[in-house]
């Protein structure tokens, strides 16, 4: 049933659904929603941090998906397109919440692997909780990079900031997560 996240390429199945939606087949809209809603809801949940807000953002995003389906070029990836619409809706939600993605003065991101992370036993719940506790800006960058798998450059363009700022924020966010996870795993 899931077309995402395993499949970024269009398949005969996704193509058929799009064709049927364009013909006005209500069942096809439902199938499209069923196929993507879980993964897209998870994006919204990670980005907003609240289930009620995540549902609202998801709904708005799908309204746009359904309305613009006929504008989707046949050779572009349906999954990537839907994901981009969902992410953009999440970002405008954050902007409405007055979250600003600002340039940082210095680009002083640390080298990767500077800190040996192997000593800390990570758990899914600890990592999840730690990311959830990050300030909105950091959380957005880390989510877009680690979970939505956008490159630093793509994130920079999505947030309207420089690539080096994205890198710096990402390194700081990661360091913060690492510290929080350390505390959490020690508590357990």
């Amino acid at each position: 049933m899931t077309l995402y996240p395993d499949n970024l390429e269009n398949t005969p199945v996704t193509n058929q659904i799009v064709v049927r939606c364009r013909k006005g087949d209500v069942r096809a809209y439902r199938e499209l929603y069923e196929a993507y809603s879980k993964a897209m809801y998870n994006i919204c949940l990670r980005m907003t941090g609240y289930s009620a807000d995540a549902e609202d953002v998801l709904q708005e995003a799908f309204v746009q998906v359904f309305k613009n389906l006929d504008k989707l070029a046949t050779d572009s990836s349906l999954t990537a397109w839907i994901k981009r619409i969902v992410v953009n809706h999440c970002l405008s939600y954050l902007r409405k919440k007055k979250v600003y993605f600002e340039e940082v003065g210095e680009t002083e991101y640390e080298e990767e692997n500077k800190v040996d992370e192997s000593e800390h036993a990570m758990t899914v719940s600890a990592v999840k909780e730690a990311i959830g506790q990050l300030p909105d800006g950091y959380r957005t960058v880390i989510n877009l990079y680690l979970f939505e798998e956008y490159s630093h450059r793509e994130i920079a363009s999505l947030l309207g900031i420089s690539e080096s700022t994205v890198k710096t924020q990402y390194m700081r966010a990661k360091e913060r997560v690492r510290q929080l996870v350390k505390i959490k795993t020690r508590e357990v």
């Binding site: 809801y41 995540a54 549902e55 990592v127």
Partner: peptide
């Protein structure tokens, strides 16, 4: 996959 939560509630589709 362990990071994924359940999908949205039925009210989202109802509204859509």
């Amino acid at each position: 996959s362990a990071f994924e939560e359940e999908g949205p509630g039925p009210k989202v589709w109802a509204a859509l």
